[in-house]
Design a protein around this nucleic acid. Structure first.
Lengths: 240, 240
DNA sequence: AGTGTACATATACGTCGTAAACGTACGGTG
DNA sequence: CACCGTACGTTTACGACGTATATGTACACT
């Protein structure tokens, strides 16, 4: 097969040959992950394949295996990229933050990052179920560490810290996923009820849901994440 | 190609031919979904393919398209199957249940069903993000209806009902996903720290996480789902 | 100048989802 | 009875996918 592609649509340089690495810059884990993230943000998770990602980089699919052990590792890389972005946002941190305020900041920024990459968010749920704790990407583990440290500062013993930790992470994840649920069935439609596809729902069986759907579609109040977090912390981390 | 398979391992009857439907019973949506669910429970989500599911039923992959529009619809069918199971569990219901107690019962049974099908649980997150509200499987919508009805009985106005609804669903989903996160890295290992793979975590950077890991691995207290639900309801659905 | 190694390609295999065309048995109708 | 439409499952085919294996090339070192 030819070692070049159409320079108009292809990404490989004309005359590109094996070992010619670096003509468009060497590959690197960062470049691979950034490209994959871009691709998923643009076209959705189902568009992500080793071959597509390689093409996007002007490289054959097999070249990626040096930087990600396989497709699953690439998905984990996307999670890693998201948490790295979260860390950057959190970097501008007060020196000695009040623990509760800081937990709110983490929750809010996690929410922002996830909503900024809606197609990646499902991976926050699925990859966490596929990978044991110790193998989660390092930025994820550092996030856990931060939260545990803050809860420890709240004066909880270890058992209570762990319980509160699980409550916080469960709430944030659940809330994020809830916020991303699509409500609109047919964006072309102007009539609100048809836009939501309410005609698909049996009225007799689902009266309240049909009534509530427009309010659900308006989206939750932005403060509900914080409100719920406070409710849970009051219960699980009673403090001053 | 031959129209029969090894009767020992294959599922097709010897001499089975096109149009011979019913030799092993006609297909049906229920049979397809039940078989797919069984397959996923047994071998995990990645083992689910149209071809495997067909083989499991003694049928070619294309035969399934009459009962599920494609692979995505099959996944939605699994979600449907889970919520159907939930409805069966909830069926033995008190006549006029106190709303709060009933919400607790729904949360607890949802948790039980999800943990009974750990490989399907991720779909509760992902399919909900892929399908707009009105196209969710009917049993899912009925679940929403039940919860809305109970919150309405708590005397909330519509806005408050919707906010509380989102809080409840977010908490339950988040808690379920949290509970399913695998902690053990190497089940062969007897030493607890090695079992968890703690040697993979940099000590200096993750001291609290390493300390907390064993407690995390022990799993949350069974009542934390209810405790958190109460905390959220107290905040979002203040009642008598 | 020679060589080892890091990096990327080439080739190949089995599996996947699904479009399109086809065959076969059954339930009605004349 | 003969006929036929339709419901149901099969056959065939195609392009894309993940990845094991073998191969090539250019650079850093001696």
């Amino acid at each position: 097969m030819a070692s070049e592609k159409d320079p108009g649509t292809g990404r490989r340089a004309p005359g590109r040959r094996a070992g010619d690495h670096g003509r468009y810059g060497r590959l690197s884990r960062e470049r691979v992950l950034a490209t994959a993230l871009e691709l998923v943000d643009r076209e959705g998770l189902s568009a992500l394949s080793m071959r597509r990602t390689g093409a996007e980089l002007g490289v054959e699919a097999m070249a990626l295996y040096r930087y990600a052990a396989g497709k699953e590792a690439l998905l984990d890389g996307l999670v890693e990229a998201l948490y790295t972005e979260l860390e950057e946002r959190l970097a501008a941190s007060p020196e000695e933050p009040e623990w509760r305020a800081e937990l709110h900041r983490i929750a809010a920024e996690t929410h922002r990052v996830a909503l900024a990459h809606p197609h990646v968010a499902p991976l926050l749920a699925t990859r966490m179920l596929a990978v044991p704790l110790a193998r989660r990407p390092l930025p994820v583990l550092r996030d856990h560490e931060r939260i545990l440290a803050l809860l420890g500062r709240a004066g909880l013993d270890e058992e209570a810290t762990v319980t509160a930790f699980r409550a916080v992470t469960a709430w944030v994840l659940g809330h994020v996923l809830d916020d991303l649920r699509p409500m609109v069935d047919n964006p072309e439609e102007s009539d609100p009820a048809f836009r939501l596809g309410l005609h698909r729902m049996p009225v007799r069986e689902l009266p309240r849901l049909r009534a509530a759907a427009p309010a659900l579609a308006r989206g939750g109040a932005p403060e509900s994440l914080a409100t719920g977090l406070d409710a849970l912390l009051d219960r699980f981390a009673p403090g001053p």
